[in-house]
Amino acid sequence: MPARPDRQSLPYRDCVGIAVFNQQGDVFIGRRKAEGDPEQSAELGAPWQMPQGGIDKGEDPLKAALRELHEETSISAVSLLAEAPEWIYYDLPDDALGIALKGKYRGQRQRWFAFAFTGKDDDIDVLNPGGGKHPAEFDAWRWEKLGRLPSLIVPFKRDAYDKVVEAFADIPRRFNLG
């Protein structure tokens, strides 16, 4: 078995995270497909999360968020509500280091955006996202209360999700959702 890389020698991967709020003030969460996903193995726990993905070199984070959202959910009918005030980090657990995220990163540095969903639930397609142009990352989805998300996420991302909840907790009230 190859030796695990030194955590401190690995960089964070720059990513975006997306919180999509419906008119009731709930957020979209998807259930990650487990097969072939070292970041989401059965022993890591709950497979639910909000959409997220890498920022391409030179790509604007907001554009990356809109692209990733469409690639993972087919959602394109959104309106920007807020951006988290700072980057939110998470580290991979030791047993995933050198395996998950193509083995190149210690975790992720995420820029989070909150959007209002302005489409219809029928527009959401996680099984054939982006009109079938992208591989499915989720096998199911639902609307959920933002405050419940840290208890539904894989344990190593909980601190990051606590920060997302804190950054966006006032959105349903501030924008009269729900």
Results as ranks from 00 to 15, higher is better:
residue 94 D to P: 10
residue 29 I to K: 01
residue 141 W to F: 14
residue 112 W to K: 00
residue 102 K to A: 11
residue 78 V to S: 02
residue 34 A to L: 14
residue 104 K to V: 14
residue 87 W to L: 12
residue 102 K to D: 14
residue 159 D to E: 12
residue 27 V to Q: 07
residue 47 P to W: 07
residue 86 E to L: 07
residue 156 F to Q: 08
residue 107 G to M: 13
residue 106 R to L: 09
residue 25 G to L: 04
residue 20 V to F: 03
residue 100 A to N: 01
residue 45 G to A: 13
residue 163 K to N: 06
residue 145 K to L: 10
residue 24 Q to K: 09
residue 73 T to G: 01
residue 26 D to F: 06
residue 44 L to N: 15
residue 42 A to E: 14
residue 108 Q to D: 02
residue 116 A to T: 00
residue 95 D to K: 14
residue 154 V to D: 07
residue 47 P to H: 10
residue 11 P to V: 14
residue 91 D to W: 05
residue 52 Q to E: 06
residue 158 R to S: 07
residue 63 K to A: 11
residue 88 I to T: 04
residue 162 D to Q: 13
residue 139 D to N: 12
residue 172 P to M: 06
residue 134 H to Q: 13
residue 164 V to F: 00
residue 50 M to L: 12
residue 167 A to G: 04
residue 6 D to Y: 09
residue 137 E to L: 08
residue 153 I to E: 14
residue 170 D to V: 09
residue 70 H to W: 15
residue 133 K to E: 10
residue 16 V to T: 03
residue 133 K to A: 15
residue 131 G to N: 09
residue 9 S to L: 14
residue 94 D to W: 09
residue 169 A to F: 06
residue 42 A to V: 10
residue 3 A to D: 15
residue 67 R to H: 02
residue 73 T to A: 01
residue 153 I to F: 06
residue 70 H to S: 10
residue 162 D to M: 08
residue 97 L to A: 03
residue 30 G to T: 00
residue 169 A to W: 05
residue 95 D to E: 12
residue 50 M to A: 06
residue 4 R to C: 14
residue 49 Q to K: 05
residue 101 L to T: 03
residue 13 R to V: 08
residue 127 L to P: 01
residue 112 W to N: 02
residue 155 P to G: 11
residue 47 P to Y: 08
residue 84 A to Q: 08
residue 3 A to Q: 15
residue 107 G to Y: 11
residue 150 P to V: 01
residue 34 A to N: 05
residue 45 G to S: 11
residue 160 A to Q: 01
residue 27 V to K: 07
residue 4 R to Q: 15
residue 34 A to E: 09
